[in-house]
Design a protein around this nucleic acid. Sequence first.
DNA 1: ACGTGATGTAAGAAATATATTACATTGCGG
DNA 2: CCGCAATGTAATATATTTCTTACATCACGT
Lengths: 84, 84
Amino acid sequence: MAGEELTNRVKQLRFENDRMTQQQLAEQVGVTRQTIITIEANRYSPSLKLAFRIARAFAVSIDDVFQSSLPSADPATEKHGKNK
Amino acid sequence: MAGEELTNRVKQLRFENDRMTQQQLAEQVGVTRQTIITIEANRYSPSLKLAFRIARAFAVSIDDVFQSSLPSADPATEKHGKNK
DNA sequence: ACGTGATGTAAGAAATATATTACATTGCGG
DNA sequence: CCGCAATGTAATATATTTCTTACATCACGT
């Protein structure tokens, strides 16, 4: 699963959300502070489960927290290229 | 990371998308067929990266493919419970 | 009946995410 | 200056995901 990069706005969202601390977020989503740190530092991307929990902690959708860097599939390649 | 269950509509989306086969989807998102199978069978939840790729393969958003079973945070517990 | 494509299962190896522990740094209130 | 909270780093252990390989079944066309 090497591939595109995912960026995230976790750190920013913490600040916007009442200056939530890493520790608080970690507790709320049920992981350790280290996990939050490494995600914020973008050293690896979280599991989908964790992504959902983080998004919910901020009451936003996953796409508001994480962004995929990939260009959104050019017309020629869409729909798994089966047609034409 | 044990926790809530995630359901998904991958199988259904394959059919809706021109009866895409597991193999085709696997190739398009860059994993093996086994990975698709286990995700469809809900034996584990994918990485966020893979979730993004799958969603893009169907040209929908992550939330259209995967659903978290957790109730959407009751008003009392929202905002990381810091206020009251 | 036979071949083939699509789906499914299983076991073990490999990769990646998460936990645990311990310590360093920085900023701030006293 | 001192203490403390918040952030960060690193090393190692554990858990979970993904790959590889091999084989089974089921439906379909011929």
